[in-house]
């Protein structure tokens, strides 16, 4: 039943996310190819001659750089909004009368929404990661060296950390919706308010954890003292952040499940 629910949820969720993901990749590719042309035209290394790039190519290059950034943000925002809206629609609108009367336990319904969210977030982050390769001019010859600093381990940890962070944001939204609907009036307002409160508390606690960690570990203090901290230091920091988000998710998952188990549909 979990697989069936997951399939239905993804079917309903995925279309706009895939469209946005496609646009993000497209804008990144156009950016990459126009960048290649711009470099070629502006600086011919063989003759040491500076050639002015075509204003049109420079314009397109700049335009698609901005479009790529916008698409990345829109993709992330749309992914989160779709995840929350499906959850709200499925469990708290008229549709909930069908969802809750399906011969399925509530914790399976909850698990299906969490897995749907995770898959959507992985699609979103992987699209952004793959598109980012276009900012590395050598990506065709060295495709797995993400980013400008060519630090595969750091970038891989960052990728998982971002997935965990987005999952935490999605979970804050779920908890907000569940708590908001325990109010009889202005449920939408309370949903947003609760979501924001949980998210802010989580982020504040994360900052406190980082602060305490750097206090206890002098080697980490270069984060605050140096403009360009070492790769090892950044890796430790991002790993810590990822662990904190993972702990949040491990706490919030059963809390939401318990609240959902006793939730009334008014």
């Amino acid at each position: 039943m979990l697989v069936k629910l997951l399939a239905y949820n993804l079917q309903r969720l995925i279309k706009p996310i895939l469209i946005c993901a496609g646009l993000t990749v497209l804008t990144a590719l156009i950016f990459y190819f126009t960048q290649y042309d711009t470099e070629f035209i502006t600086h011919d290394t063989r003759t040491e001659e500076i050639i002015h790039a075509s204003p049109f190519i420079v314009f397109v290059h700049g335009l698609f750089y901005n479009l790529y950034a916008i698409c990345g943000v829109v993709l992330t925002v749309i992914t989160l909004i779709r995840i929350w809206s499906l959850f709200q629609k499925n469990l708290y609108s008229d549709e909930a009368y069908l969802t809750y009367t399906l011969p399925i336990k509530r914790h399976i319904i909850w698990a299906s929404h969490c897995l749907t969210a995770l898959i959507a977030i992985i699609i979103c982050m992987t699209t952004i990661l793959l598109s980012n390769l276009c900012f590395n001019q050598d990506f065709i010859s060295a495709p797995f060296q993400f980013g400008a600093d060519h630090e595969p381990l750091l970038n891989t940890i960052s990728y998982f950390c971002l997935i965990l962070q987005l999952s935490f944001i999605a979970m804050c939204g779920f908890l907000g919706i569940i708590l908001g609907h325990r109010h009889t009036k202005q449920t939408e307002l309370f949903s947003r308010l609760w979501g924001f409160i949980v998210f802010t508390l989580g982020e504040a606690l994360l900052l406190l954890t980082i602060f305490l960690f750097t206090k206890l570990n002098p080697a980490m203090q270069e984060i605050f003292q140096q403009a360009r901290p070492s790769i090892e230091c950044l890796q430790s920091l991002i790993t810590l952040v990822a662990i904190v988000y993972a702990i949040y998710l491990l706490i919030l998952y059963p809390v939401c499940q318990k609240l959902l188990d006793s939730a009334d549909l008014n």
Partner: peptide
Amino acid sequence: LGVASKTEIAYLPERTYLDKT
């Protein structure tokens, strides 16, 4: 009440619960 009862009870609510899309 649980999965077994949901299997054996067909419920028509007072509102439309179908996915309109």
